[in-house]
Amino acid sequence: MKFKKLFLILLLSVCSQLKAQEPLKEGSVLDNIVLKNIDGKTYDLNAQKQVKGFVLVFMTPSCDHCILYEDRVIALHKKYKSLGYPVVAIGPYGDNAVKYPLDALPAMKEMAVKKGFTFPYLSDENFKYTWLLGIKKTPTAVILKKQTKGYLIKYIGQIDDEVDPSRKPQNKFVEQRLNTLINKV
């Protein structure tokens, strides 16, 4: 009998840990993000008072697809920052220059300076937010809507449906979601 109770407690414990490791999805609430920016300072979403939300873009300097999207990410920031949804880029490999020298903080900074990024480019520590948000490829966008406590995840996915910057996308997923959000407010 004691063995069965112990086994049941152990099983429940393992199941709850597995559930806790599931990535957040659209409709979930993210408490906050606090990470190191390429300027060496800490960037805290909660410290940004004049926003309605954020467009997080997970991107890396060496990813061919990310390179093709750099100008579109810059355009998103220019268009939506004044509407309350600035871009915040996040480099999944930013904190590990030994294993990922082409995608770590120095490479991120070089790319941001070269392209003239006017938005933060944060280094994800130990893939914390990359895993928490279920990011499996770059670039991936996440739209967050600011709430009283935390940020409601409104979208996780592609920026649009056309990798080739010389062709016009049929669907601009991030813009469509943002326009819907902004028009509802």
Rank of each mutant, 00 (worst) to 15 (best):
A107G: 06
D64F: 09
K109S: 14
K145R: 15
V174P: 00
R177T: 10
Q176C: 02
D31H: 10
F3H: 09
A104V: 04
V142L: 03
G116H: 08
F119R: 07
N126V: 07
S28G: 02
N179I: 06
L10H: 00
I9G: 01
K114N: 07
P86I: 12
F54P: 07
F173M: 07
Q170H: 06
P92A: 13
Y151K: 12
K172G: 03
D161L: 10
T140N: 01
D39V: 13
A75L: 04
P120Q: 06
G157R: 10
I153Y: 01
R177G: 00
T138A: 04
L6E: 08
S123D: 04
R177P: 00
L105M: 07
L12K: 05
I182W: 05
F117D: 00
Q21W: 10
Y80W: 09
C63Q: 09
N46G: 13
I182Y: 06
A141P: 02
M108K: 03
L68T: 11
E70D: 13
A20R: 06
D71S: 14
Q48T: 13
V57R: 02
A112G: 10
P23T: 07
L105C: 03
T180N: 02
F127D: 09
N179Y: 07
T42W: 12
T130A: 06
D124L: 13
V163P: 00
D124G: 07
G40M: 13
K114A: 04
T148F: 03
I33R: 02
G91Y: 08
S16Q: 07
K168C: 04
E125Y: 14
G84W: 09
D103F: 12
K114R: 15
Q48S: 08
M1Q: 13
V113I: 15
I153H: 05
A47V: 03
V73S: 02
I143V: 10
K2P: 05
I182R: 01
D64R: 06
K19T: 12
L144Q: 04
A89N: 12
F54W: 11
L18N: 09
